Simulated scan of single mutants.
Amino acid sequence: MEFWHTVARSGGAWFKKAVPALAAGLVFVLQQTPSETLAHSYKLDDIAVGHVWASPPEEGAGGIAVYGPILNRGDKSARLVGASSPVAEEVRFRISKDGDVGWLEYIELRPNKPVSLAAWREHIWLSGIRDSIERGDSFELILDFGDAGKLPVKIVVEDEGGH
C-alpha cells in the first residue's frame, strides 16, 4: 500500500521517466533480428525446441548430458532420430530410470505433448569429448528429426539451465 501512496504523492513523475525508457527498450528489441532476440529457441516446421543446455562435465562421468524442452506442434508423431556435434565422438540418446541407464534409438515426439529432456528421463548424451568443456562454454549440436530435417542448436554449459 505504501508504494501506491508514494506514487500518488509524486504526481506520476516516475511514470514520466519510465515511459521513454521502456519505449527505447522496446524499439531496441524490435530492431534485433530473430536470431538475436530468440537466441535460445529454435523451430523446424512444426517442431519447436526451447533453451537446450548441458550440465558441466563431472569427473569420471564419461560424457555430458544435454537437456531442454521439445514440442511437436504438428498433428502427426515425429521422432528425434539422431544428433551430432563437433565436440564429441559420439552422441546418443540415454535414459536414466531408478539408477539404471539405457540407450534409445530415437525419442518419440507425439503431437502437442511436450518432451522435456531431463536427467531422470530421456536426454542426449555426448561422449568422447574432444575439447575441454567448462561452465560458461557453448557448442553446436545438430538435431536430426529424420524426414523433417536437421536443426542446429547452440548448447550452453550451465547449472540447471538457468543462465
Rank of each mutant, 00 (worst) to 15 (best):
K16C: 01
E122C: 04
E90M: 13
G62P: 05
R94F: 11
I70L: 15
E108V: 12
T33A: 12
H51I: 02
V91F: 11
A8I: 09
G63C: 09
V81Q: 14
N112T: 05
A78S: 14
K76R: 15
F15T: 02
P56Y: 04
T37C: 07
L30S: 07
N72H: 12
N112G: 01
V81E: 15
S41T: 14
V81A: 14
G62S: 09
A119M: 08
D147M: 06
G82P: 10
T6I: 09
D147I: 07
A24C: 02
E140F: 04
H163G: 15
D137F: 00
A21D: 02
S55N: 12
L38K: 08
P57H: 01
G50K: 03
L22R: 02
A8M: 07
G102N: 08
A54N: 02
I70N: 10
T6E: 12
V153Y: 04
G63S: 07
D75W: 09
G12D: 01
H163A: 14
V27Q: 07
D75Y: 08
F3K: 12
E2C: 02
V66I: 15
W103R: 04
L30Y: 08
G161P: 05
D45T: 11
E158L: 01
E90V: 14
A24F: 02
A78H: 12
R130I: 05
R94T: 09
P86D: 15
W103C: 04
G11T: 01
E59A: 13
W120P: 00
A54D: 01
A88N: 10
R79M: 14
G82C: 13
L26I: 13
G63P: 03
H5S: 09
E105R: 11
S10W: 00
F93W: 10
V87Q: 09
A83W: 11
E59Y: 10
I133H: 00
E89H: 13
E90K: 15
G74S: 14
G50Y: 02
L71P: 06
L30T: 03
V101E: 13
R121C: 04
L143Y: 04
N72L: 10
D147C: 03
I142H: 02
V19H: 00
E158H: 02
L44W: 03
P114Y: 03
F15S: 00
E108I: 05
H5P: 00
I70T: 11
E90H: 14
I124K: 06
G50T: 01
L151Q: 04
D98H: 13
I107M: 09
V115L: 13
E90G: 04
L143T: 05
G63R: 05
